[in-house]
Design a protein around this nucleic acid. Structure first.
Length: 311
DNA sequence: GCCTGTTTAGGTGTCA
DNA sequence: TGACACCTAAACAGGC
């Protein structure tokens, strides 16, 4: 066999990187560590000639990876940034995954429980709708029992779970309401909260809800000019009017957004984040923050805000 | 109609 | 060998 036959050009040889890694490299190459989809495409095609062909195929896969993997988070595009769609960033907690892992296969997939609960509810609904399955609301959105071992002996765990379960339900409700499926969650808390609480006990035990100090300024927002987000976010009015069911984190968030909305003042993510924390600390109820990790709070808020974007 | 984003489904390869 | 990460195709929705 001739050496010529063995030669594989750059266009023919697939780079030894998974789509997750390629996306990671693209995002990390940007000054703000976030890129819109088109820029991610552009980076990959510029650096890897293999991807200049069959663009439809790999771009579909790449979009699938962005949506499917929790290590990627969607953040709103700046007001002065042209183009469609959002920017994509790496979840800070997922960074370690790229530091010492294989570029082809990670040791473990990065997964956010909250998002998967909310998305799982909607996915389940859509799937059943497509199959014309009529399911009783009482059981439709319970969590997977095999995922969380139950511990029914501790009253404290039960109480903590009640708070977190409400948050999970609410996040699901908010996301669902944005997509017109709010009615499906109307009776969820009354009918299945006990199951949810028990099923979540291990989940919450691991999180070890603890007191927090004021976090350092979020580095993620350092490059964001607050004025670019003027009047950007709004909270669903029906949730604001129903405050007795709002957990503290979301209640404060809702108040901040709507107060500022009425005053036509700026509601930048960094403003909301900092004031949200301050409000919680003032109320001395920081133990109810769903996750005391600074980065997670930033991205939880951004994630929620992304769903509430007012165009 | 195209682009972006979400989700499902089925397949392959790798690892413990 | 099963679990899981990853790839691919495709359907679909919503926005522009």
């Amino acid at each position: 066999m001739s050496s010529q036959n063995n030669f594989i050009s750059q266009e023919e040889q697939k780079p030894p990187f998974s789509y997750i890694w390629l996306t990671y490299m693209a995002i990390q190459s940007s000054p703000e560590k976030m890129l819109p989809l088109t820029e991610i495409y552009k980076f990959i095609m510029e650096h890897f000639p293999y991807f200049r062909q069959n663009t439809q195929r790999w771009q579909n896969s790449l979009r699938h990876n962005l949506s499917f993997n929790d290590c990627f988070v969607r953040v709103p595009r700046k007001a002065d940034q042209p183009g469609k769609g959002s920017c994509w960033a790496i979840h800070p907690k997922a960074m370690c995954m790229f530091e010492n892992g294989s570029c082809l296969r990670r040791q473990k997939r990065f997964k956010l429980d909250i998002r998967s609960v909310a998305n799982g509810c909607l996915a389940k609904y859509k799937r059943n709708k497509r199959k014309n399955i009529n399911i009783n609301n009482k059981t439709k959105f319970s969590l997977n029992k095999t995922k969380f071992e139950t511990n029914k002996t501790s009253n404290n765990i039960y109480e903590n779970n009640n708070i977190i379960t409400k948050q999970l339900i609410l996040i699901g409700q908010i996301i669902a309401s944005q997509k017109g499926h709010q009615h499906l969650f109307n009776n969820l808390e009354e009918n299945s909260s006990t199951n949810l609480i028990l099923e979540n006990s291990k989940f919450n035990l691991e999180r070890k809800i603890t007191t927090t100090t004021t976090p350092p300024p979020p580095t993620f927002f350092n490059n964001i000019n607050a004025s670019q987000y003027n009047n950007f976010f709004v909270f669903p009015q029906k949730e604001v009017n129903n405050t007795q069911h709002l957990p503290n984190q979301l209640l404060c968030l809702s108040n901040l957004i709507n107060d500022n909305h009425n005053k036509s003042s700026i509601q930048s993510p960094s403003y909301l984040y900092n004031n949200l924390h301050q409000n919680l600390l003032n109320k001395n109820e920081e133990t109810e923050i769903i996750d005391n990790k600074t980065e997670v709070n930033q991205f939880s808020i951004l994630s929620i805000l992304g769903g509430l974007r007012k165009d």
